[in-house]
Design a protein around this nucleic acid. Structure first.
Lengths: 342, 342
DNA sequence: TTCGGTTGTCAAAGCGCTTTGAAATTTCTT
DNA sequence: AAGAAATTTCAAAGCGCTTTGACAACCGAA
C-alpha cells in the first residue's frame, strides 16, 4: 500500500493525502478525517526511504559502534543507548548503528554522515586530541559529543561530566580522613575521562604536597578482572596504599574481591571510592560493604543528548551547546579513617 | 556530490557510472578505472536513501530495543550487539534500532518492517507464546529469532541454545555429587529460556524422585542485586538448599556475596552452577572461587545470526533454518560434594 | 561488402514521497 | 449579482539512484 494507491482509493490526489497526513493547514478537516480513517483501515505507512529522499530528513540518529573479533563490548554502551532510546521513542526517531573496526572509526563516521541515512551524529569514547572532531566540523551535520577531547579546542557541542572535579572531591574526602598513600585504578589512558580523573586526583594530592607514583596508577579496561589484577598489584607494594580511587563500579567489584582475598577489610584497612554510572545491574549501596561513590547517571546523559540532538534536528528551540554536569559524592561505608601505621 | 554531477564531470552517463560502481560486466575496464579514480578524488558516496528507494534493499538489519524510563538495560544486549556488528561490518551492513515501549513491541516491529528501512529483522527476548511470531509470519520479510517461544509451533527460523539440556546436565552433575536439596535462581518467568531451564532442572530431579519446591525457585531480573536477595532467601529456608543453579553470572555475583556474608563457603557448604554468556566483564574462572558454569557465547550467537540474516538478504546460499547449540559444562571449584548433614 | 554478434554507452522510466505553483471551488464583499 | 478573497484540491516536478531497452561502434565471418 503506497500513497498513490491510497489516494486512488480515496478519490483524492496524492498531494492532498500527503498534506492531510503531515498536518498541513490547507486541507479540509472533514477530508483529513476521511484520510486518517483510511490509513487506519489499510494500515498504510509511508515509505521512510522515499520520505527521506524527498525531505532530506531521516528521523534518525547515527552512531558508530566500534567492534571487532577481539574487541570487548562495554556494559556502559548498553546503558547509554537505553537513555538515548528513551527519548528517541517519544519523537519517533530511531538509531542507525554503523559497526566499525576500531581503527577505522573516522572513516566509518564519514560514511555514515554522507550516506544520507541520518540527521545527526552522536560521538562517544572521546580521546585526547580526538581526530574525529576535525572531521565532524567539516561535515555540516548536527552532532553532540559525549565527553570531551583533552587538548582540543573546546569549540564543539558536548555533554560531559566534571570528571576532574569528581575525582578531586573524592580525593579530598580521603585526605580529610587522614589517608596519605593513594592509588588510582583508571580506564584506558588514551580516553579523555581517564586523563581528567587522573588530573583531579593529582591536583588534590598536590595541594597537600603529595604525589601519585607511577606504580600506584593502573590504566586498563574497566572490567571485573582488571579490577582484581590492579588491586592485587597495589596490595603487594612495599608501601601499601590505603586509599583507592576507581573509575568504575564494575572494576571495583574485582578490586573488592582482591581486598577480601588479602584478608583486609574494606572501609578499615582500605578505603575505596569508585565512580558510579548508575548501572542497573550493579548497585553500590547493596555491596556487602556499601560503596562510597561519585555518581552521575549515564542513562540520564543519554536522554539529554538525545533531547539536544532531536531538538536541533526538529529546530525546536535553542539548546546550550556545552554542558558540564557535576557529579554527586555519596559517602557510604567503603571509606573510613586512615588506619594507624602498624 | 551526486551521481549526476559525477557523471557530468566524467563525461559519461549516469547509467555507465552507476554500472561501473556496482560491478556490472558490461562496462569497459578502462572506464571503470576512470570512474573509481574520480570517486576517490571527489569522495563521492551514493545516497543510501535513493539507493534503497531504487533497489528496495537497505543494507540493514532492524531490531527493536525495548526501553522506557523504568526499564532496565541489559548487559547481555550490548554483548549480543557486538556479535551482530562484528559480522555486519564485514558486509557493510548497519543496524536500525527502533526504541519502543516494552508494551508496544509488536506494533514497533511492524512499523519498523513496513518503513522500508530494513531488509531483515532480528528478534530477541522471546516469551512463551510470543505474539510477535504471528506478526512476523504475516510480514514477508526475513527474520531470525534468537531463542524460541515455548508453546508455539516451532516453524520459524531461530537460533537457540539448548537451555533445557544445559540445566539438565548441570543438575545431574550436582546430583552425582550427592546433593538433594536444590534451588534455582532464574530469569523472569515469562521468558522462554527461563521456562526451559526450569524444565531441565525439574526433569533431572524427577529422575531421582526429587522435586523443586516453589520456595526454592526465584524468578527475577538477572542483576547482581536480585542475586543477592534470592540467595538470602534461600539461605533462610528451614531446609537450606546446598545446590544452587543460577541463570546468569551477573546474578551469581550477588549470590556469592550472600553466601560469604552468611559465613558459608562456596564449593563446600553451597555448590553453585551458573550459566555463562561469556561476558567480557565477568570471567567466572577468575572469581575468588572459580565458578562452575554452563557456557555458550552470546557474542558468537550474534555473529551467527548476522551471518544468516545477511546471507539470506544477499541470497548467498541456503542457511539452516533452525539451529540449537549445545552448551559446555565447565566444572570449576564452586561445585563440590554435598556436605554431610549436621 | 554485408551481416550477425559483441561490447560499451546512453536516454528515460520508475522507486514513493513532498512541495510548488496553478486551478477549481466556495465564501465573503459591495 | 459580480468580483475579490479565501479555501480546497490538483498535476507535475524533483529528490538520487538503478535498471530497462535501445542504439552506436566495432569485431570477424561469409
Amino acid at each position: 500500500m503506497n500513497l498513490k494507491q491510497l489516494s486512488e482509493l480515496l478519490g483524492l490526489s496524492q498531494t492532498t493525502v500527503s498534506r492531510a497526513l503531515n498536518g498541513y493547514p490547507e486541507v479540509n478537516e472533514a477530508t483529513r478525517e476521511r484520510v486518517l480513517q483510511a490509513v487506519k483501515e489499510t494500515g498504510y505507512r509511508p515509505n521512510k526511504a522515499a520520505q527521506r529522499l524527498a525531505t532530506g530528513k531521516a528521523g534518525s540518529i547515527g552512531l558508530v559502534m566500534p567492534t571487532a573479533p577481539g574487541h570487548q563490548s562495554d556494559v556502559h554502551f548498553g546503558e547509554f543507548l537505553a537513555g538515548l532510546g528513551e527519548e528517541a521513542v517519544r519523537h519517533d526517531f530511531h538509531f542507525v548503528i554503523m559497526p566499525s573496526d576500531p581503527d577505522d572509526e573516522v572513516a566509518a563516521l564519514r560514511r555514515l554522515a554522507i550516506s544520507g541515512n541520518v540527521d545527526a551524529l552522536f560521538i562517544a569514547y572521546m580521546r585526547a586530541h580526538d581526530p574525529r572532531l576535525a572531521m565532524l566540523k567539516s561535515l555540516a551535520m548536527h552532532y553532540v559529543v559525549h565527553g570531551r577531547s583533552f587538548g582540543a579546542e573546546p569549540d564543539y557541542p558536548f555533554l560531559d561530566i566534571d570528571n576532574e572535579g569528581a575525582f578531586y572531591d573524592a580525593t579530598r574526602l580521603l585526605l580529610q580522613l587522614g589517608h596519605t598513600r593513594f592509588a588510582l585504578m583508571n580506564g584506558p589512558m588514551h580516553l579523555d575521562f581517564a586523563i581528567r580523573r587522573r588530573n583531579g586526583v593529582i591536583s588534590a594530592l598536590g595541594e597537600r604536597g603529595l604525589t601519585l607514583e607511577e606504580d600506584c596508577m593502573s590504566h586498563a579496561l574497566m572490567t571485573d578482572e582488571q579490577g582484581l589484577l590492579a588491586m592485587e598489584r597495589f596490595l603487594q607494594l612495599p608501601e601499601r596504599p590505603t586509599a583507592i580511587l576507581c573509575s568504575s563500579t564494575v572494576m571495583a567489584l574485582g578490586a573488592i574481591r582482591a581486598v577480601n582475598q588479602a584478608g583486609l577489610r574494606l572501609g578499615e584497612d582500605i578505603s575505596l571510592i569508585a565512580h558510579d554510572d548508575v548501572l542497573p545491574l550493579l548497585k553500590p549501596e547493596s555491596f556487602s560493604v556499601p560503596l562510597t561513590t561519585t555518581r552521575s547517571s549515564l542513562r540520564a546523559a543519554g536522554v539529554r543528548i538525545a533531547q539536544r540532538l532531536i531538538g536541533t534536528v526538529k529546530q525546536a528551540g535553542p539548546f546550550p551547546d556545552q554542558e558540564l554536569w557535576k557529579t554527586e559524592l555519596i559517602v557510604r561505608a567503603s571509606t573510613g579513617p586512615a588506619p594507624q601505621r602498624p
